[in-house]
């Protein structure tokens, strides 16, 4: 069964200790088991760009859709035997020891081809041919399927968007996630694995799915792609650039080198991009 793992600090995060961040071992373990499909680290939250469409107007802000503690720092798609194996895999990830790992099952469509996977076979070896963004599709309270710009609700399905973006070669893969009631949180504290249910509050926004996109036109094209997604009208789309690294590099040295990049936005300011597009 396939799951998305999302890594975040969470409300009870401990201080980050690079010495504990042995992610290379984790990657080796999940690859050896054949559990891993694909995963990537995301650039820090200041490089997030959130896109909404309200009343036909594209609204873009720098930053994630939610407050920082819950902002996602990376993701993996895994194919585990069942939730217990997903919990075990999640609990061994370095983030579990200071932050938390969220396990989200995907929606399994009854008409899906047998044996089909979320991540296309061989994807990890595919050359990067543009700039990649993770597009988080966010449901906002009261905003779900609201068709805020007055379009009829039947336009809200993502099928047309998927066809268009697949045709343009922009969309690499993506899928709808089961709702927060089916989420499971995993943390590791004092050597103990703590498993809790999603604890979903109706009033909170939540991630309903994601797509990985690859664009040649930079953030401007990514915003254009995101704004066409039907959920941009009722909810929000968060665009997150990747932050690849060599998992077998010395992690203490890496953390030291990367510290300077945290807190500084490398992406262009969304307002400038919009102004450029307008010209």
């Amino acid at each position: 069964m396939e799951y998305a793992l999302f890594y975040a600090e969470g409300a009870d995060a401990l201080p980050y200790d690079p010495a504990q961040d042995d992610v290379g071992e984790w990657v080796d373990d999940v690859e050896a088991r054949g559990v891993s499909e694909y995963g990537e680290r995301l650039r820090p939250e200041q490089d997030a760009t959130t896109v909404r469409v309200r009343g036909g107007e594209v609204l873009v802000v720098d930053g994630p859709f939610t407050e920082s503690k819950e902002s996602i720092g990376g993701f993996d798609v895994i194919d585990a035997r069942d939730l217990d194996e997903a919990i075990e895999v999640a609990s061994k990830h370095p983030v579990a020891s200071f932050g938390r790992v969220e396990i989200r099952p995907f929606v399994r469509w009854p008409d899906a081809a047998p044996g089909s996977r979320i991540v296309p076979p061989g994807f990890a070896d595919r050359a990067v041919e543009g700039r990649r963004y993770l597009m988080l599709v966010v449901v906002e309270p009261g905003g779900e399927r609201a068709a805020a710009d007055g379009r009829p609700v039947e336009d809200d399905g993502p099928e047309a968007w998927v066809r268009e973006m697949d045709g343009r070669g922009v969309r690499l893969f993506g899928e709808v996630l089961r709702g927060p009631a089916d989420a499971t949180f995993v943390r590791r504290r004092h050597g103990e694995v703590l498993v809790t249910d999603g604890g979903f509050a109706e009033a909170k926004e939540w991630i309903a799915g994601f797509d990985l996109i690859e664009v040649r036109g930079g953030l401007a094209e990514a915003i254009e792609v995101a704004s066409k997604h039907p959920m941009a009208r009722g909810g929000a789309i968060e665009l997150r650039p990747m932050w690849p690294f060599d998992v077998h590099e010395d992690h203490v040295a890496r953390a030291g080198r990367e510290a300077a990049e945290r807190g500084v936005r490398r992406e262009p300011a969304a307002s400038e991009v919009l102004a450029e597009v307008a010209r």
Binding site: A80, R81, D82, L83, D84, A86, I103, P105, R178, D182
Partner: peptide, 24 residues
């Protein structure tokens, strides 16, 4: 019914946990 749905959707196994998980 929500609990049963989660068992199905989240893939909660119908199994006695393995020996290492059993105490917890």
């Amino acid at each position: 019914s929500r609990a049963k749905r989660k068992i199905r959707h989240a893939g909660i196994p119908y199994r006695v946990p393995t020996a290492d998980l059993l105490p917890e």
